[in-house]
Design a protein around this nucleic acid. Sequence first.
DNA 1: CTCCTGGTTGGTACTCCGTACCTTATAGAC
DNA 2: GTCTATAAGGTACGGAGTACCAACCAGGAG
Lengths: 225, 225
Amino acid sequence: MSEKPRSATTKDRLVAAAYELFEERGFEATTAEDIARRAGVGRTTFFRAFGSKDDVIFPEHDLLLGRIDERLAAATPATRALALSEATRVVLRHYLDEGELARARYRLVGSVPALRARETGGIQQYQRLFARWLREWLSDLPDGQLRAHLLAADLVAAHNYVLRRWLRDQTSDPESELDQAMRVALERYQPSGLEPSSAVVVLRTSATSAAIQAQLQPLLDNETP
Amino acid sequence: MSEKPRSATTKDRLVAAAYELFEERGFEATTAEDIARRAGVGRTTFFRAFGSKDDVIFPEHDLLLGRIDERLAAATPATRALALSEATRVVLRHYLDEGELARARYRLVGSVPALRARETGGIQQYQRLFARWLREWLSDLPDGQLRAHLLAADLVAAHNYVLRRWLRDQTSDPESELDQAMRVALERYQPSGLEPSSAVVVLRTSATSAAIQAQLQPLLDNETP
DNA sequence: CTCCTGGTTGGTACTCCGTACCTTATAGAC
DNA sequence: GTCTATAAGGTACGGAGTACCAACCAGGAG
């Protein structure tokens, strides 16, 4: 019935057919054979292309994992915080580029428990990837292993928070929101071991600033754990 | 209305049979009929008891979700931090009580991708439950919604970090480790809007402590955002 | 041209999961 | 005893995913 672009590859036609049918009659009510028939191929070809019915919906997952890994591998010690932030941005941008397709997937996944499980499995893979790098980067800190896992969880949660707001049409500037979310998430990232925040208390005294400095220094040098 | 021990033993026999067979010949190579036969019941009874082959492995999930919800619902504003910590402890204790069964499940889930997905789906439910309460508790904070999601992710990640260490036999005192992990995770929980950490700087001066206090007070009262 | 070869596709058959439906057995309630 | 409710087993079915085979379609080589 509906015509497909001649140049579209078999995989693309299958994806398009699948989304059409899922929206028309739901995920469970659509069989693999239905999808194959609408795409004009055999059932065998469908399973050869995707391996499972779920895979039609998350085809770019491995690609994104690879890009994140690349971005993190390219970081220098001085640019690690930035790399973490940019790595999440890679994923966000991917979905923004997908546009309506991403929103269709969001609606679909939200309404089918089986797909939810599949999606969270994918998210978990992101988190593990972040954790793998962070374990190394934070290995010198006290509780470094634990903090690596927490920060990985934060990064993924922060990204998903912003992404979901965009998917639900609750923001028109998701990139700026990601900036802010990353700022909050990265409060945990303190590779130099500094306090998360510092307060300066000023009292008037007759001492010279040099004298004050001399007295402050030993206090700052051996911090309480 | 009380649980019948008879039906409980049927379920228990099925669980025992399932774990035996999974260890013997693997998850995929074991059919539902195999499990039912070894437990001495019919295939129909198996599916009535568990609904799916995966459910044999995660039978207590809903129970734990309920207990977490209870614990969080019972919190007063002053005891919320404690309630969050205790809620994760409920889950940890459950696994500790299971003992070797929990370790068998860990080995099994680790080796079967399909079960991994199922498990992370369950974890996600914990996280969503925490987030639901925290959204409300942190609603007055700047970035409260975001912070609620991050803290929920932290709590779950911290709990899982300790649990996995125990499952891998890397700790003999998981409860103490959970204390420490919660201390780190809850750094994010600052419902009163206080700074995440405070530093006291002491300089000698001739002023009385009352005079110092008088000078400090205005500084403390209007904090910089 | 025919013959061969490798790769892609479609078709058929099979196992198994999960559900629906129907029958049977057991245990009280009366 | 009978009646009824509940748990159990049995059978049949649709659909996912796999295995295997047959058909087609390149492009050489002779």
